[in-house]
Each structure stands twice: as C-alpha cells, then as structure tokens.
Design a binder for these strands. Structure first.
Lengths: 274, 274
DNA sequence: AACTCTGTTTCGCACAACGAAACAGAACCG
DNA sequence: CGGTTCTGTTTCGTTGTGCGAAACAGAGTT
C-alpha cells in the first residue's frame, strides 16, 4: 500500500454558501462531474420540480450545459422528466445511493437499541446526525413510546448554527476546521452571523464545562434539545441529540439531569468501537 | 414553452446488467458525469468500503480515471476517505439527495395512513416501491402493530423477477418497455432466465385474471406476498405490496381474500390523484 | 405580427479529461 | 537485501469531449 502525497483532499472545504464552489486549477478535479452533481443538488434547495432554466439560475451554469446534464442524468435514472410540466425531478437512482450510505453505518445499527432505551426513559426523541456541508442530517432517529409530534425522518437536514446537533458537531471538530466553518457560516448568514455566533460561543462554553450543548427554543421556538458529539474510529464526528417540546421537558430539567445522561450514552456508544 | 424533438431521453434504457452502460456516440451525453456516478454506484453493489483498485475492477474504468473521480467526489462530500484502510466509502452527500427524492413523493405521504390501516387489518406489512434499473426500491413501508420480523427500510432493493413488487411493475409497463426489460433480465440471469421468466409469465396471467401478482416463497422461502401496480398521474408506475411470513398468512388466504383487498387499496390511492 | 418565454441545436475551438507508462512507496519473501 | 508484488499517484502528450455564444424553434401572450 502506498500513499506518497495522499490523494485524498486534505480537508473537506466544500461548504455551500449558496453559490457552487469554484476550484480554480486542479488537474485532478473533474469539473463536469462536479457540475452534474450540482444539478442534482439543485433539487434539494427547496423546489421539487425544476426546468432547465430554473436549474441554470440556481446553479449558475449556462443553459446548454444544464441541458446536457439533465439529459445525461435522466438517461442514467437519477432524474425523471415530467412531460406535462416539461420539468425534471429527482428519480429513484439517488435513493439507492442514499440507502447504501445509511445502511452501512455500523454506528447506526449498534446505537439503535441504546437510543430506544434512552427515548423510553426520558420520553424524548433521540437522533443521530452527521454533517453535510452546512447542515446536520439525521441518519437515525428513535421516538419515545407515545410517539411525539416530532417525526424527524432519516435524511432530514437541520441547520448547523442553531440546533443542538450542529453545535455539538461544531464543538468537537478541530480548531482549523472550525475556523473554516466559521467563515462559511459568516458568508451564509451575513449580518445575522454575530447573533448565530453568539449561540455557538455559548455552546463551546457549555461543552467545555459540562460536555454537552443545548438549543433551547433556538431552532424551533417550542423545542428544547441537547447534543453531544460522537467520535467514530475512522475519525468521523457525528452528533447525538435528544429533543422534546419544551412544555414536556423544561430547560432546567434538560440541563440538570438529562443532558448529562446523554453524554454518558455517547460515551457508551463510542466504547462499542464503531 | 418548447419541445421540438424532446430532449428527454425517449425511454430509460439504462438497465445495469452488471457492466456499465456504453452509449456510443451522443453529443449530449456527458461521459465523465456518467463515469463519476458509476463510481458512486459501485458502492451499492455489496461492498461498503472500496479502494481505487476495487472501484476500477467493478466499474471497468482505468485507474487514473478512478483516481480523479474519487478525488472529486471526496472533495464534494459524496465519498469519504478512510486513512486507516486507505479506502473510500460513501459519505453524507448522497443521503441528502436520496432524502430529497422520497420526501417529495406526494403518493408516499398520501398513501401512508391507508397503508397503516391495511397493515392493521391484515396483519401484513405493506410496502410502496419504485423501480431502479433492475430492482424495486422501497419508498415507504408500514408495519402491522405487533411489529413483524420484516423490517424493510426505505431504500432497500428487491430483485425484480422474483418479488411481488417487481412482478406487479413488470405487468403494468408497456409491451415495448417490457421487451427491453426482458432483454436486460435475460442478460442478468443467464441460464437461470427461463426459470425466472416462468415466474413473470405466471404473474402476467394472475394480473390479467385477478388484477394482482403473487410471490409465494419465491424470493424468501418463508415469505408470501402480493403486489399490485399503482399508476401515478405523471406516468410513473410504482408497486404496492403486502407481505408476511407464510405461516401467518398462507397462500390461499392471500390469494382468495387479501390480494383483492390490496388491489382495491391501490385503486383508492390512485384516485387520490397523485 | 411582434414579443417573450421556454428549451434545443449548431459548430468551431480550447482545454479538460484521458490513459499508457512511469513512478513511488509498503509489505512481503526467500 | 535485492527482487517481487501489491497498492495508488503523477506525468505528459494527445485527442476528443465538453463547452457556450449564438442561432433556432416552438408556444403563449399582447
């Protein structure tokens, strides 16, 4: 086995701050692949059905390029064409890929029973999330027996700055990565950044002092949640969270007892060796 | 709005019979995008973690090309690099795409309560599937109250020829599409094709006579299931199925009463206007 | 009939992607 | 230790693919 200068890109810097990334001069980077995937990702930014024009506007790609990409993606089964509306939408090809990812996450399988037990004991829903660019994505979510209103499905995206999941992740990454993340978030939030940063700074303090982060009504006014990072053996950092409506789990109870239990749980899961 | 000769590829002919598709000469087809996606799909064929060499072998692409593709995909967050094993695996980027697809399927949302009710009444698990190349993929699955052993997750792939889902789909498509599908299946199964075709022929007869298809222990020895197609308004064809261990739901009860109810359910769902 | 909105197609060029071959390390091995 | 065999990376000259401005083509709209 060899690795002279390590082909794998040193750090994942592809934060999407709205506009697509423009790597300037990299012989190894395959531009048209990147563009094609940008076309697919255009469908995750809200709209479910897009014409070539829409895609061109969202991605910033020229029209003929979009035309070729949608043609190719349709032929491969990643997009489908709606002849009535004359627009495209995602097709089943992307689902196969997404499933291949989650179904092979060992941590997900192993953590599931622990998460169930925790959900049962605390009556909160327990989620496991990973980062994708500037979001946290659920890879698992277990509900308490009396199924709460919170039905977070696998794949759902949460913002990074205002949720317990995002904050736990933010606290756990290296200083260098965090600086990059700060830049990307600042770009995304513009003049709202100072406010968001305040929440993240608070999270860092919480995390250093107690080992967990909180989001008390800061993402959804009625939801309190706590989050802790989980370090996988391959270096991946995920976040374990528990959430409930604030009238069921008030802030002080979350802070004083439950969040600490969550941190213990994270430790247990890590020590399973995933 | 314009469509002179219809840019959208006439028919989705991208059946993967093992080896990647080789379109010969199509100015609109972006080869490198197709190749990059082939690299991603390599991870859905069993292995969860692959080196460049493995990918080259699976996809048939030359080594330097694979190197560039993995480099690009890693940089974009669709693959992650495991430094210990010096191999790649899928990353969270693909999950965001897959979720965008399922979460926007109206039929899924609308059918869910009906499927729950059917599961409760019949004590079978009820699935909604769509086709991806030579497989059917779950886009929704609802279990009966006393959660059976069958836990089919969204995204899971079923073979097309031996399952009730696949057969229902097979019966519902046009003759021309079916002929193409036959060719692809023949290529996939080789000398086993006559046997598989027998099952599909039987399904066609069942479907014409009764409006449903069956798979009685033909996919999993211990599982009986029935399937019916669902036609969406945009022309998409999906399949609705119900399944249970054969000792709980014997073949005759499935054939004589439940399958017919399933066909009725499919009609109800179609008439919701999805 | 002129205008606008779509999306497709053309076509010549540039340069991005290609891939054979060379290189580079690691592990193993007698 | 030199040789062998894995791995994956890099080089580099060539080619042909992907590019995109501009032209074209329909369908509504006024």
């Amino acid at each position: 086995m060899a690795r002279t200068k390590n082909n794998a890109p040193e750090l994942m810097v592809a934060f999407d701050a709205g506009e697509p990334v423009k790597p300037e001069k990299d012989r190894k980077f395959v531009e048209s692949l990147s563009r094609g995937l940008d076309v697919l990702r255009a469908f995750t930014q809200g709209s479910v059905i897009l014409g070539n024009q829409d895609i061109a506007r969202i991605t910033g790609l020229p029209k003929p390029t979009v035309s070729r990409m949608t043609y190719t993606l349709t032929k491969l089964g990643y997009l489908s064409y709606n002849t009535q509306l004359e627009k495209y939408q995602l097709s089943s090809g992307v689902l196969a890929l997404g499933y291949a990812y989650v179904s092979n996450l060992k941590v997900r399988q192993l953590a599931k029973p622990y998460m169930d037990e925790f959900a049962r004991q605390t009556n909160m829903s327990v989620g496991l999330t990973c980062r994708d660019r500037l979001h946290m994505i659920y890879v698992e979510n277990r509900l308490p027996p009396e199924a709460s209103l919170l039905r977070m499905e696998i794949g759902l995206k949460l913002p990074l700055a205002t949720t317990a999941a995002g904050r736990a992740y933010y606290c756990a990454i290296g200083d260098q990565d965090r600086a990059l993340l700060d830049d990307a978030l600042a770009l995304k939030y513009g003049e709202d950044w100072p406010e968001k940063r305040q929440g993240l700074t608070q999270a860092m303090e919480d995390y250093r002092a107690h080992g967990f982060c909180l989001s008390l009504g800061e993402w959804d006014r009625n939801i309190n949640s706590a989050g802790v990072p989980i370090h996988l053996q391959d270096g991946t950092i995920m976040a374990l969270t528990c959430s409930a409506p604030s009238y069921l789990v008030p802030a002080d109870r979350l802070r004083d007892t439950i969040a600490h239990q969550l941190a213990m749980l994270a430790g247990d899961i890590e020590s399973l060796g995933v």
